[in-house]
Nucleic acid binder design. Structure first.
Lengths: 347, 347
DNA sequence: TTGAAAGCGGTACCAA
DNA sequence: TTGGTACCGCTTTCAA
């Protein structure tokens, strides 16, 4: 097997000048050929092309970006909660698919819930002159963007709408999603439905709580505060909270988990107690293998890739000159019944 | 709530020249301050700093990259199977964490198994002058890299070693992993162990088959070819293959699935047949919720984030001038017993 | 159809 | 400690 070593041979790249010399033409002519501009005779064009190949010439993006008016770096920045969680990764994937079509690269970074990190990374990405930003915010308010974006870098929020600044956003209808989930349980006769929620200062958490309450109200029922636990961050906390709920005198017969990791934690608690087939469970956000659990997990699903693609469409429209007022696209989540949510209330 | 619109106000950025004018110093002095070079009096430094703030000056990376000798773009390219699968996402996360420490960004793209896409993206990333590349190869041979990397861009392979070119690589010991998994089953008395494998032209698939066979041989047993199904790509195919295996006259009492999605497919088949607690199953590659399945899925786990971090360490060492011979780091996978793999053979 | 010269925003090198 | 000037690799403008 032929193997060639690659270590330590940093030969210099050919420049446009080198190509011009080899092809016996001027710099400008090479530029025309490389950029597919008209006004070059076929013969010359071929001569330049072959010189390009012989020298393995690659245009220096930094140089052209520098001189070109309205320069593009061909880069979008994407700030997500955590690259390695399925939700973020799905959004990134959708974004990537649209970006690829325009030859744009995706510069992705994880925020891990850090508002300070969000600011620092936005600053860095703006300094790098990315063409646009897609942000899944970790901060409560995004006023700081006003200063960052004075030069017109388009931004689109995903997952949560921005606060303190007006720009495009793509979210799902969280109230609707929670209403669907909770209503599904109530319609199966459950009258004590527990809720495990995440941090109440995050708008999506508040919306999902609102949907939980609304589903009750719509049916002339009352959501019970003692069955609601919030400010849960990890799956372990959700497991513990579920244990606590089920240990009440009058325990819930069904549970709504407002986020995928919390649903996982709740499912674990039910399994631990052998109540997986007794207590109903509906989660918010789908995840891989949810249908292989016992019982298969009923969820409200949002299409992450679609969110990513939609956000990409927004920012690229802005890059291409769309100056219409900020748009807020709200996608509808759908209920996916699989088993855990169809357990009826005990009679 | 104060809200400021951001649409359509593309004011020009301040340049170093503007800062120099405002601070009443020369261009070069501003450059010194911005780059923290010595030889500037504290007074002048402060004056420049405040001018930088007042104008919200951001150094133009393209410009400095252009002139600076041994310029860095502060970007690494990462080519993975699919950003949105947990394996790729984990590697990316590890890579990101190390890259962030040096202020380097990660430009990630999905290959979706396309060898042509791999070549095209490598070409694009090299043209973009990324400082280094981390590649989870989709192609069979990577000879083409020899041309691409003549200028010395460091590359590190992950998941699979390169073929046709010598460079750094970080992989796991796939033979060992499959031996652990298969041996685990054989040691519980199983004598007919089925295997569901992916594409045989991928080296990791061959290694895992080799480990499957070796586990038998070490125990004086013979792996049975009729129980091996390969060239499986999707979970659905694995489900179908598992159904076929279990429909044999002398069906396997245990199954080794050589990749996470195949394990999911096999688990589904077992559940469909109500054999989840009869037929043992061990998968290669962990994934979220594997421990919530019924029975919880026993797997051989590789630490994706560690792979990413290790690969990052390799390429950054190269960027920093390490010219030692190519290194191949092999990490050891570990068996995680959870239930599905501990089902004994029927007596 | 082609080319010469200026300049994008910075850094390198050397002089003051 | 500071500044001037050439120049990185390419695009722009305008002339031939």
């Amino acid at each position: 097997m032929a193997v060639t070593s690659l270590s330590g041979n940093g030969r210099a790249r050919a420049t446009m000048r080198d190509v011009a010399a080899l092809a016996g033409v001027s710099l400008k002519t090479v530029s025309r050929v490389v950029n597919d501009e008209p006004g070059v005779s076929p013969a010359v064009r071929d001569r330049v092309r072959s010189a390009v190949r012989r020298l393995d010439y690659r245009p220096n993006l930094a140089a052209s970006t520098l001189r070109r008016t309205g320069a593009r770096t061909g880069l979008v920045g994407a700030l997500v909660e955590d690259i390695s969680n399925p939700y973020s990764a799905g959004v990134l994937r959708g974004l990537e698919d649209v970006a690829r079509e325009r030859g744009t690269g995706v510069l992705a970074a994880s925020l891990d819930g850090g508002a300070d990190r969000e600011r620092a990374l936005v600053h860095d990405l703006v300094t790098r002159r990315v063409d646009a930003l897609v942000v899944m915010p970790a901060s409560e308010r995004q006023d700081y963007l006003v200063g960052e974006l004075r030069t017109g870098t388009p931004v689109c929020f995903v997952d949560r709408p921005p606060r303190g600044v007006e720009c495009d956003a793509v979210t799902v209808d969280n109230v609707l999603g929670a209403r669907l989930a909770t209503g599904h349980l109530l319609d199966r006769g459950h009258r004590r439905v527990g809720a495990v929620l995440f941090q109440p200062w995050i708008s999506t958490a508040r919306d999902r709580l609102a949907g939980f309450v609304a589903a009750h109200t719509e049916r002339g029922l009352h959501a019970q505060g003692r069955l609601v636990v919030d400010d849960l961050t990890t799956a372990e906390q959700a497991t513990e909270a579920t244990h606590r709920l089920l240990a009440l005198d009058d325990p819930p017969t069904a549970i709504f988990a407002s986020r995928n990791i919390l649903a996982a934690g709740a499912a674990r608690a039910l399994r631990d107690l052998g109540l997986g087939h007794e207590v109903a469970l509906v989660g918010f956000d789908d995840f891989p293998l949810a249908d292989l659990l016992d019982p298969p997990l009923t969820v409200v699903r949002q299409d992450m890739e679609r969110i990513g693609r939609t956000a990409a469409a927004r920012v690229f429209a802005r890059v291409d000159g769309d100056t219409s007022p900020p748009q807020h696209v709200v996608l509808e989540p759908v209920l996916v019944p699989r088993g855990s949510g169809e357990i009826s209330a005990p009679s």
